[in-house]
Design a protein around this nucleic acid. Structure first.
Lengths: 293, 293
DNA sequence: TTGAAAGCGCTAACAT
DNA sequence: ATGTTAGCGCTTTCAA
């Protein structure tokens, strides 16, 4: 062993991989690398994988559906020992040939371990919270409507309205895409369309921050004139003025749990098919009782 | 070829890699994955690498210096064809054995291609800008002081003061670490220590946003009572109230150029030893002339 | 131009 | 317990 160290011998991973059919690499597919939401999730993943001697290969879809094919091929070719899907749906009808786990939200009908966050429940809780504050007309800004998470949050919003005895008004729903800029644009639109609601619940914090910005620019005060709420509790949510009322997701835990589940699978063990992580309503200043009932 | 497709044959990358001594993988080492600054840089890298058929392996140091060793070993073992360093210094005295490029700031004395951003010039420009607005006592919040970028920005700050005919006052310098929370904490400290400056220039936007938050909480108005400026122009900089005056860095380009340089190297060509990318002062509302000369 | 053969560096199976 | 050998699936070289 001294001789090994002296000579500076390093095993060749390619040869090792060829022979053992293990790469010690995991592919992480995510929809948008520039979304800060994922940074903490990635960190959780990286921590867990690194500790187990695995490396993390990032596949950023960045809205390009055709990249899914390449990532699927990549995995199918045996470049990685496992795949973590953060993009909310399975891709490549064919099997990837390696263990897969899904994070953030259930992929319907898929027989793979899932790390779920209670999106629906969280959105419901926020909607009920706003109703409890006295809001009767609660608007909603959606994320990408084909996304599982978005569908769950939207469903939670509707459930919340129902439980609070409020009627759903499609006129109070704005279609967004989870991006900051879009939030700002929608904020401007909300104002130009005339104020029909006393609160707006955004499907994520980025858009909520965009709304806050648009409202501030227009001299509309939050929460005096209109309440705003978000979802995720990204770091910036606590740093806006007013600070953003939101639903906290345990982002790092999501990553860590997901990686653990995959490592279990890679070790030949059987992880829990579903891990549900709780969300938590974080009350800050951006949502308050409306001025006039 | 039809037969190939029919049978579903996929080349084995491990065997290919063993034989050809190419992995088509690049290691990207970065200091802090959760820093939103890097997300756009990573996207630029990913785009360029993906287009060239390369994959990106993320190595997140996350403040843990001992991880550098593992990453160095990883590269030395031949797991990747090249390395991109975003952490501002070289690690592992020994050679990595593969091409390396450095992004974001020059690594002194290293004979590798560098993608530089004019940190010093940018910081100098901002300091002069603040002086031109009429500020005579301009505070500075540092990043991690052992970081090359920070050293450059700080040097730029001092140069700016000098050019404006202002004296450097160490009492107006607060030591930070580029984190949002730290910015907020320093903001509180600045207020509690009594207002000795009419403007504060933060070494990055995250901390500036933290300051903005602390000031707003305390009822201190920006820019009426105090001006704040940042560096980077992250997406959130335009979304604060007031919006943040800052120095824009072409983050995506940094990534793209870095990846291109590495790909050149991998292709046996010789890229430009240094690419300098310009910064740009973005004037927004957070910095204005002080109320009383 | 096309085909055969050697061998990359390791691991696992087998023989001692 | 230790040593030997075959072979993972390619690419590259060399021969036809």
């Amino acid at each position: 062993m001294e001789a090994v160290a002296k000579v500076g011998y390093v095993p060749n991973p390619a040869a090792r991989s060829l022979r053992s059919r293990k790469t010690h690499m995991v592919l992480v597919v995510l929809p948008d690398l520039s979304n800060i939401f994922f940074s903490q999730v990635l960190r959780g993943i990286e921590e867990a994988l690194f500790a187990a001697g695995y490396g993390m290969i990032i596949g950023d879809l960045n809205g390009a559906a055709e990249k899914e094919r390449r990532f699927a091929d990549f995995a199918a070719a045996g470049q990685v020992d496992g795949v973590m899907l953060l993009n909310g749906h399975l891709f490549g009808e064919a099997e990837l040939g390696v263990p897969v786990v899904a994070l953030c939200e259930a992929i319907e009908g898929a027989d793979i371990p899932q790390i779920e966050v209670e999106n629906r429940k969280g959105a419901r809780a926020m909607t009920e919270h706003l109703a409890r504050l006295g809001h009767r007309a609660i608007g909603y800004v959606t994320g990408p409507t084909d996304n599982v998470l978005e569908r769950e949050r939207f469903a939670g919003y509707r459930e919340g309205l129902e439980r609070a005895g409020l009627v759903f008004d499609p006129g109070l729903v704005w279609e967004g895409d989870w991006k900051l800029e879009t939030g700002a644009a929608i904020g401007r639109r909300i104002l130009s369309e005339g104020k029909r609601q006393s609160a707006v619940f955004c499907s994520n914090d980025e858009m909520a921050i965009g709304l806050l910005r648009a409202f501030a620019s227009a001299g509309v005060r939050v929460p005096e004139d209109i309440s705003v709420a978000g979802f995720d509790d990204i770091e910036y949510a606590a740093m806006t003025s007013p600070a953003l009322t939101t639903i906290r997701q345990p982002r790092r835990d999501i990553g860590r749990e997901g990686a653990s589940a995959l490592l279990e699978l890679l070790g030949g063990r059987k992880p829990a098919p579903r891990i549900r992580l709780q969300t938590e309503l974080v009350e800050r200043a951006s949502a308050a009782a409306p001025k006039h009932g």
